[in-house]
């Protein structure tokens, strides 16, 4: 149970396209705990680093673990990992949405990865004329879902639904771990 090799690439099992939330939950928990252990071992969470730096590291580890647990089949998970890798490379903390720099790169990557993105522009134009309020809300949603800027409306909604489920799971597991670590 301790080792869970190559979670990220396990998505090549196409027949496994619908993984249950409980599997994702277990995968996330294992990965997250493993990175916490790693951080602890390297002294990244000890008192000599600033409190802010520590919690940023943990936050990045949490999002990254979830994205890995979900696997590369989901656009939001790919985008999230890409973003995290970039900000780690730049030695930047994961402040809430480093949008400007990630936007262009995400779009480039999505185009490379997904053929169906060719249809985006057409669809955008169509919804433009339809409903301004809806469009406004949709744009806000794009900013919140990783990689959302490069999605057509349909995939945006589908990815959002999945993203919400996973985020809720992530919060729950983090909560459980924190409760477990808290002095009784």
């Amino acid at each position: 149970m301790k080792t869970y090799p190559n979670l990220g690439s396990s998505a090549s099992n196409d027949n496994n396209s619908r993984r249950s939330t409980s599997t994702t939950r277990a995968k996330f928990a294992l990965r997250f705990i493993r990175s916490l252990k790693e951080m602890k071992k390297r002294g990244h969470v000890s008192n000599n680093s600033s409190a802010d730096e520590r919690s940023q590291r943990i936050k990045a580890a949490a999002y990254s673990s979830m994205a890995h647990a979900v696997g590369p089949r989901r656009a939001w998970a790919r985008a999230l990992l890409f973003k995290l890798q970039r900000s780690a490379k730049r030695h930047r903390v994961l402040t809430n949405m480093t949008r400007k720099m990630s936007r262009t790169c995400l779009i480039l990557k999505q185009k490379k990865n997904k053929k169906k993105n060719k249809g985006i522009n057409k669809k955008k134009r169509v919804t433009n004329g339809n409903d301004d309020v809806l469009l406004n809300q949709t744009d806000k949603l794009r900013g919140l879902v990783p990689g959302g800027k490069a999605m057509d409306v349909c995939s945006l909604f589908e990815e959002t639904a999945h993203y919400i489920k996973c985020l809720a799971t992530q919060v729950k597991v983090m909560q459980d771990i924190a409760d477990q670590l808290s002095p009784k």
Binding site: V45, N47, R54, K59, I164, M174, A178, L181
Partner: peptide, 29 residues
């Protein structure tokens, strides 16, 4: 859609808070 945005924001905030809490806990325990 509006509620979806709010919900995602609140989940992000919860992750922020929990990361902080975990970092404190890990530093001490």
């Amino acid at each position: 859609l509006q509620e979806t945005c709010n919900y995602i924001r609140s989940l992000h905030r919860e992750v922020d808070d929990l990361s902080e809490r975990l970092s404190e806990l890990l530093a001490t325990t």
